[in-house]
Design a binder for these strands. Structure first.
Lengths: 132, 132
DNA sequence: CTTGACCTTTACGGAAACGTAAAGTAGGGA
DNA sequence: TCCCTACTTTACGTTTCCGTAAAGGTCAAG
């Protein structure tokens, strides 16, 4: 099985995802990622890489690191007992609902901004005529 | 013309929008709203109310107060000269593009979470069978 | 062996968006 | 008149998410 590369250095991930090493170490402090070590160096596996992608996307959609951690933990535990799983499903569902509401807000904001853009463009055209 | 009510007190807006008075005063400090005064009391007009709604929605979609202020200012200025308007359109368009990308992230996150929910539910069903 | 690139930890700093305590004012009801 | 409620300002405190030195370890190249 041809893997892309078993391990990535911190610098490689920084380049790939455009984040600072400081941020990655911070995420590690906050227990969002836990790369292995070769001596003192961090070795990021594909799994860590995937988690990082998750983290960054979570951030972009407005989740706090704490919220992201909670969801990542749920992913990990996946195989707990039933009550655990029930709670997992509930938490995830709540987030999904929240994200859907957020999407409504985003759509509304886009619409409003685009409407405003058209209005300004119209004003512009009007002035262009008057200046003829 | 039957208006809903010419002026609102700070408490009324707090109740209506579920924000604290502290927040509203903060927005005022940051020049996002500028309610009139009757003596020392703040009087919020319908316009202020609309702006507040805008602010809160902006927040929900992840805009910073500074970004929100910039957009609100653009709304106000609407009637500047051409270069002004050009910049206005550009800024708004940039925000629209950013929001659209954000929506893509949201959709991806929703999809992933929903997939995970299904997976957990499936695990749950499996265990239910084994426990028979 | 020294240089340079890349990595490490520790720790203080800082913006954003308010919370919260303190202390005072304004107006209406009993 | 007294009191209660809603409002006010001032100002320091808090949380989140890192930035930014400071001070040094590691390892390959020259």
């Amino acid at each position: 099985m041809l893997q892309h590369k078993e391990h990535h250095s911190i610098g490689e991930l920084c380049d790939e995802f455009s984040v600072t090493a400081r941020a990655l170490r911070f995420y590690e402090d906050e227990a969002l990622i836990a790369p292995e070590r070769r001596g003192t160096q961090r070795l990021y596996t594909e799994r860590d890489r995937a988690r990082l992608a998750w983290i960054l996307r979570g951030k972009r959609v407005g989740l706090s690191l704490a919220e992201i951690k909670e969801l990542l933990d749920l992913y990990d535990i996946g195989d707990g007992r039933r009550t655990q799983r029930l709670k997992t499903v509930e938490t995830c569902q709540a987030r999904v609902d929240s994200l859907k509401r957020q999407r409504v807000d985003i759509d509304a904001t886009i619409k409003e901004l685009e409407g405003f853009i058209e209005l300004v463009k119209a004003q512009d055209a009007e002035q262009a005529i008057q200046e003829k």
